[in-house]
Amino acid sequence: MRVILVSLLMLALAGCASNVVTDYDSGTVFGNYASWAFAPKGEGENFTSLDGGRIESAVERELNRKSMRKVEQNEADLLVAWQIVEEERLERTGVGLGFGFGSGNFGWGLSSAPPIREIEEGKLVVELVDTDTDRVVWRAASRRYLNENQSSESRRKLIDEVVADMFEKYPPGV
């Protein structure tokens, strides 16, 4: 009985695990920040991708909820930098096993695993940079991934959920 109770407790705790990991500079007074802007694009980046537009809209919505003002880059207290970090994962389905009966005979079969396939996924990382010190003061990384098989609507929904989870933990300690 104890084993069952412990197992159920562990399962419940695993279900409560966060989909976002955050880190911050503990010496920073986050109450001093009132304005923000997006960090300039990297060299060679002249456009915003579809996912980039979704991310920027979600970040803007969440910072507005925190009563922070979006201003020009040279007037901002914080710069928001984001990136989608690409990761590759190997996926294999498994081995099939079957049993059967027919006209007095017994038979069985075993199939080998199909080829392993690579899946490219991307996790979202958002950083807030203090414009006076040019140092990252807060960082959030998603444990949920975007992949190439998701529809536009599911990508938008996932990005909205992940960014909301991220900024739920900003400012830290609140």
Rank of each mutant, 00 (worst) to 15 (best):
F30D: 04
A140E: 06
V85G: 04
R139D: 02
E75H: 09
G96K: 11
W108K: 07
A58N: 00
N74F: 09
M1H: 12
E88C: 03
V137N: 02
R143K: 15
S112Q: 10
W36G: 05
R69V: 13
F99Q: 08
A140T: 01
K70C: 07
A81V: 03
G31C: 07
L11Q: 07
V137K: 00
D134R: 01
A140D: 05
K70T: 02
L158D: 01
Q83S: 11
S49H: 06
G53L: 08
I159V: 08
D160E: 13
L9E: 09
D165I: 00
V126D: 01
N64R: 12
L9A: 15
V71W: 01
I84T: 07
Y145G: 06
G53C: 02
V126H: 03
V126T: 04
R61H: 08
D165C: 01
S154I: 05
G173K: 08
P40D: 14
I84Y: 03
L13M: 15
A39H: 07
Y33A: 01
D77P: 03
E121Q: 15
R155A: 04
S112V: 12
G94P: 08
A58V: 00
A140P: 02
R135K: 14
R135M: 07
V85Q: 13
L128W: 04
K157H: 06
V174M: 14
G100Q: 08
G107N: 15
A58G: 01
M10C: 15
R139T: 15
S18N: 11
S103K: 15
S154F: 03
T48H: 09
I4L: 14
F47W: 12
F38H: 05
G102P: 03
E118T: 15
A12P: 02
D25R: 08
